[in-house]
Amino acid sequence: MEKKLVLYLGPEYPKHIKEKLENNVEIVFLPILNIIPINKSSMDFLNNVDSCDWIVFTSPRGPKILADDAKNNKVFDLIIEKINNKKLAAVGSETAKSIEINLGKKPDLLPKNYTGKELGVELVKINSKCVLLARSRQGLKDINEVLKEKGINFIEVNLYEESINYENLLNINEFLTKNNIQYVLLSSPLIAKAFCNYIKQNDITIISIGPSTYNILKEMCSKFNVLIPQKYTLSSAIDLINNFPR
Score class of each variant (00 low, 15 high):
Asn47Lys: 14
Ile65Leu: 14
Ile83Arg: 11
Glu122Cys: 03
Glu122Asp: 11
Lys71Asp: 12
Thr58Phe: 07
Gly62Pro: 09
Ile79Thr: 14
Ile101Lys: 11
Leu46Arg: 04
Gly62Asp: 15
Pro107Ser: 03
Pro60Trp: 08
Glu118Lys: 05
Leu33Thr: 13
Arg61Ile: 14
Asp108Met: 02
Ile32Gly: 00
Glu122Phe: 04
Gly120Cys: 12
Ile65Val: 11
Gly116Cys: 11
Glu94Asp: 09
Thr115Gln: 12
Asn102Arg: 15
Phe29Gly: 13
Ile99Lys: 01
Met43Thr: 15
Glu100Tyr: 11
Ser98Phe: 04
Cys52Glu: 07
Leu78Gly: 13
Asn34Ile: 14
Met43Asp: 10
Thr95Phe: 03
Tyr114Pro: 03
Asp50Leu: 14
Lys40Ser: 15
Gly104Thr: 11
Lys105Asp: 05
Val121Ala: 10
Phe57Ser: 02
Ile80Ala: 10
Pro63Thr: 07
Glu81Asp: 06
Asn48Arg: 04
Glu118Leu: 08
Lys20Cys: 09
Glu26Lys: 13
Asp69Arg: 04
Ile38Met: 13
Leu46Asn: 09
Ile32Glu: 03
Leu21Glu: 07
Asn24Ser: 07
Glu26Leu: 11
Glu12Met: 11
Phe76Arg: 10
Glu118Cys: 02
Gly104Ser: 02
Lys82Ile: 08
Cys52Ala: 02
Thr95Trp: 01
Lys18Glu: 11
Pro107Trp: 04
Lys40Cys: 12
Glu12Ser: 13
Ser42His: 07
Asn47Gly: 13
Ser93Arg: 12
Ala67Met: 11
Ile27Thr: 01
Val124Asn: 02
Asp44Tyr: 08
Asn34His: 09
Pro111Asn: 03
Asp50Trp: 06
